[in-house]
């Protein structure tokens, strides 16, 4: 019954940490409500409130019916759910350190990259479950008058592709959250970064508005890696029929940028955890 450091046991250790994340999440009902409830409320309220002043972007011209704001906002809300879940999952790093759990893992005979793998795996599973649930249930709100009828088509193949793409977005955002949370000592610090960095990142990704209003704004949108996540998901929800425009990059570009950003953030995370830090031990 000896412990080993084979790749199999690394995955088993990472899965153990991810499994812990899932138990912790589902045991805190307020977290479940917070992560999915708030984006849904945003979707319904902003959708109803901003609908009148919304100008559909160029790529929507070919749709059979005019694009409503709520429909435009739909993939953005799914990405917001992924972002909130990623934030809540990675903020627990700070709690793990404070509560002492982290030092137990650091003293175990596994590479420290297991901590990254466990968090990213756990955060991704949670994010995909919740965002996937929203993508399935969201369109049904039209039956109770809380949203207009959506034109999205979720056939089996695009639905599977959308789920896979959601996994990519979740990996990218969880790893991003991890590298922000890891050096921090307090959850307050993380909230500050969330307000000045993560939320604007989402706002300027084409999730909330098309962003073609001014040159500087469209440049920020174009440089934002999350733009490619939102655009890719949007494309998959319309079965890849949307035209390529400035604000809606092509699918290969979306996949390429999202994969590249996921890999880079994960590598930075592994690098960060491998550095010994005295504040990891309490």
């Amino acid at each position: 019954m000896n412990a080993s450091s084979q790749p199999g046991s690394m995955w088993s250790a990472a899965w153990a940490l991810a499994w812990r994340e899932l138990i912790r999440f589902f045991r805190q009902r307020t977290r479940v409500i917070g992560a999915i409830g708030q984006p849904v409320i945003f979707w319904v309220l902003f959708g109803a409130g901003l609908g009148g002043s919304f100008q559909p972007p160029k790529w929507a011209a070919g749709l059979s019916q005019p694009l409503t704001y709520q429909e435009y906002f739909f993939p953005g809300v799914a990405v917001l759910i992924v972002m909130f879940t990623a934030i809540f999952s990675t903020i627990s790093i700070i709690e793990d350190r404070r509560e002492g759990f982290l030092q137990g893992v650091l003293a175990a005979p596994v590479p420290r990259s297991v901590i990254v793998m466990g968090k990213v795996l756990g955060g991704t599973v949670l994010a995909v479950i919740q965002a996937g649930l929203f993508l399935l249930v969201g369109p049904l709100l039209s039956y109770v008058g809380l949203s207009p009828a959506l034109q999205i088509t979720l056939d089996p193949v695009p639905a599977i592709l959308a789920a896979l793409f959601l996994i990519l977005i979740a990996v990218e955002l969880t790893a991003l959250g991890f590298l922000i949370a890891w050096p921090m000592n307090s959850t307050q610090g993380f909230h500050a970064i969330m307000s000045i960095f993560l939320m604007p990142m989402w706002l300027l990704s084409g999730a909330f508005f098309p962003g073609g209003g001014s040159d500087w704004l469209s440049w920020i949108v174009r440089l934002n890696p999350l733009t490619y996540g939102v655009a890719g998901l949007r494309r998959l929800l319309y079965s890849g029929t949307l035209p390529v425009t400035d604000s809606l990059p092509s699918m290969p570009v979306c996949v390429g940028v999202t994969v590249a950003f996921s890999v880079v953030t994960c590598l930075i995370c592994v690098k960060l955890v491998s550095r010994p830090m005295t504040h990891n031990v309490t």
Binding site: M1, N2, A3, S4, S5, Q6, S9, S12, A13, W15, A16, L17, W19, R20, G104, V105, A108, P109, V110, V114
Partner: peptide, 8 residues
């Protein structure tokens, strides 16, 4: 969870 982290 701890046992799995230790590769058991």
């Amino acid at each position: 969870c701890h046992g799995r982290i230790y590769g058991l």
